[in-house]
Structures are given as C-alpha cells and as structure tokens.
Design a protein around this nucleic acid. Sequence first.
DNA 1: GTTGACAACTTGTCTAAACAAGTATATATT
DNA 2: AATATATACTTGTTTAGACAAGTTGTCAAC
Lengths: 239, 239
Amino acid sequence: MNKAALVYQDLLQKIDAEVYPIGSYLPSEHQLCELYGISRETGRKALATLAEDGYIQKIRGKGSIVIEHRQYEFPVSGIVSYKELAEKLHIKTQNIVYDYQPDATLPVADFTSLGIELTEAPVTAIKRVRVIDGEPAIIDKDYILKSVVPEVPKQAAEDSLYAYFENQLGLTIGYATKEITMAPATDEDREHLAISKGAYVAVVRSVTSLTDARAFQYTESRHRADRFSFRDFARRTKK
Amino acid sequence: MNKAALVYQDLLQKIDAEVYPIGSYLPSEHQLCELYGISRETGRKALATLAEDGYIQKIRGKGSIVIEHRQYEFPVSGIVSYKELAEKLHIKTQNIVYDYQPDATLPVADFTSLGIELTEAPVTAIKRVRVIDGEPAIIDKDYILKSVVPEVPKQAAEDSLYAYFENQLGLTIGYATKEITMAPATDEDREHLAISKGAYVAVVRSVTSLTDARAFQYTESRHRADRFSFRDFARRTKK
DNA sequence: GTTGACAACTTGTCTAAACAAGTATATATT
DNA sequence: AATATATACTTGTTTAGACAAGTTGTCAAC
C-alpha cells in the first residue's frame, strides 16, 4: 500500500476511535509531514480522500475538521459486495440460488463506430434470494458475460460472486453505474420475498466494469420496500 | 478558475463533442503538458476528476479511456439544486409553496462532549410541491436553521432556495448526506401528489452543510414512485 | 475602545524532477 | 515459428519548493 493510503487508514482509525472526535481539527498538513515523515503533497492526498469519503471538511486558512459520518447502511451503498457488508455489520445472512442458467444470452449494447448496436451475448444467468435475519429481503438477478468470465460455478454464486471474481480469477473490479427506481412487485417478487399483492419493490439496476473498462456484469436487485435504504454523501462542486 | 479545472472543462467538452468518443484514449499525460502548457501533476488532477465523475477510466501503462457516462437523471443525483437540474434537462417545472412557517422549531442533534443532545432550534419551515410537465411529482419539506439564515423570504422558496443562499446571501454549500427509503403514502402525500390509497412514495432525507461544516438545512423529499429515479456512479476502492 | 497593519499560522495551486511499474512493439535468439 | 529481450511508451508515487490566499491573534496608532 502507498504512503498516502497508510496515512488515510491511520487517520480514519483515529477518527473512529475519537482520537479526533467530530468537530475537532486534524493536525495541520505541515504537522502531518513531521508526524508521518512524508511530504506535504502525500499528506494532502490522504486528506483529500478523507474529504471525498465524507469524513472531514477542509477549510482554507483553518484546517481539516472532522464531520459527522453515517456508517454504511444496508444494503446498497457504494460498490461493496453483499458479503463484505454483511460481515461488516455482523448480520446473519443467507444466499439461496433458485435459478442457475450456465448457458443463457442477453442483449448487450455494442458501441460501434456508428451508434449503438444490440447483440445477443452469451452469459451466465443467476437468480438469488438474500435472506437477512431469517427474512427474505432481496432478489438478485445477475448476468455475467462469458467473454470475460467463461464459467461461474454454482458454488461461487452461493458464496460470493465478488470473492470469486477477485480472489479466484484475479479480476479487479473498477467501477459501477447504478440506477434506483420503484416498481410494483411482480409475481416472482411476491413468491420469493413473501410480500402481499399491490406492494412495491425498490429496483436497483447496475452495470459493473473492470479496471480495464470492460463491462462484464449486469445486475438487477429487487428489494422489499420496508427493508430498503440507500445512503449517499455528495459534495457541491462548481465546475 | 484554476488550471486543472480549465483542462477538466476542455476535455469534458471534447468528450461530449466526441472529439474523444467512447472507447478512445485521451492524450497521454505528457501530451497534455504540451497541449495546455501545464505540469504533469496539474494534468493528472484534471484526469483524476474526470475519473471520479465517471467519464474516463485510467489504465496504468496504457492511458485514459473514455467510458460510457449516463447523464443526470431527474430528480435526485449528487448535490444539484432542483432548478439547476430542471434547466439542464429543459423540463417545464413549477414550484408551489403550500405551507410557509417563518417561525417554527425543529429538534436538532447537538454534539456535545458527552454524546448527543436534542435541542429545539428555531427554523424556517417550508413545504412545496414540484410540478413537472403539469403533474405534481414531488413534495419538498425544508427546515432552515435561523442561526445561519435568519430569514427566508417566501419569494425565495417559490424561486430557488439554493440561488437565494448562494447568490443573495453569499453562503457556499459544501456537502450533503442523503438517505433514500420507501414508505406508504400519507394523507398529505395523496392530497398533493394526486395518488391513490395504498401507493408508495420514495422518501429522500438530506442534511446540507456549508463549506465551514455548519449543517443548516434539513430536507425531506417525497417522490411519486412512478416518477422516481436515482443514478449513481461508484468506484471500487481498496483501502 | 476601535481601527488598522502586521505576523504567523492555515490550506490552495503549481512546478520540475526522479523513480517505480505496467503495456506494447520491434528485434534478436533459439 | 516461438521465445526471450530490450526499449520506448504509458500511468503511479513521492519529494521539495515556491507563491497565493484565507484566518487569527498581537500590537501600535488613533
């Protein structure tokens, strides 16, 4: 890990431990240089990341003040795998694969020189129910491009897809785009989420890409309304 | 504006104009130095911001590739004022203030040395209906701390609160935390949003702070389910 | 007491340089 | 033909320094 990331971690840990409580100021950039034996720019990078993640607010002429930061809330926030979150929050969760299609196809947008073209691409299609504290809360429908991941063992889906991609295959996830909407529950939703007729679900559609910019996974998550929560931190930027 | 921001804008404009289409590479960092007469670190800052905002993906050893970027979708994304979004998307919108309380109070969390204390703080309370293309779509309930903004004219609420804070008062908005949940529609929702019994609404609660880290505004937005959409771009970070 | 200038802090911006590390291509070797 | 190697690109990390600009307290002048 690089120096800036190490300083970031150390400062974050001290913020969590209230060595630097909410409302207090972190050491100045010059002090960070001496404390950690780093250059100012390196310290500034650590501070910039803390600001980006919503832990501090930098104030010119004054310093970096620790601001209130709400922890991750289940189940959608940033791009963290379901299992990582569950472990972080010490929640009992279960993963039931109720549909597994190793040889399906999916229409995929292809960016050719002249506009967008739709082509049928081979995918592995997986449907899962996420059970939280004994109650079914989320349906996940995953479609994984075979051109990037030739096969996805059923066992990987029952455990953690992210762990399989990153630890087993050595792929590195880069970024994802997400869209959240609301929709009336379908028959499939009602069956697996145990909800009544006329109820609504939160639908989260996302496309995940690797660090080399290859999009390889499309996911549709359907959440029970009473269990759904999404938290976000945004900065006002004038550009 | 600083050099990095100027380069950011110029590159972004060229991405939009497809001088650098999706899938192509931007000029290398060394080339940016010559093109814009800047140092490498300055160019890297522009690129880092483009990556943060989801326009490019940097690949070590290769370059910065332009990736697909979905435009803002109405109505919640980042921290942009309602009016700014409406103008950007050329949407006909109307702003009806149906409740205006210049002298209300709100329980506010106070972070003392020993835990959190709730105190009643004087606020201006405003309730508005956002009408999009002739249809009521959102209810906004705003509570603005009088200790920061002594008074909010009704006219400002009918126009744009952000414009009033930033242009009239010279305040600079820094950041906001948001939480999205779903809830059954209340009588108030049904009355102003013209929806039927048993329907659901998307609830967006947010706290907005200034750049000096003073939280000064609490907002609860209630969206008609069929009009609600939220888009997000997230990077996978290993820390 | 109030004001104003100053000094000493803070963060913001920008530069030039060096080295590490990943990618791609041409070239020589087998 | 296949393989290894050199090398010329790319981005990633880190440093040391300079100057700009916002904040705060001190102190002299009024």
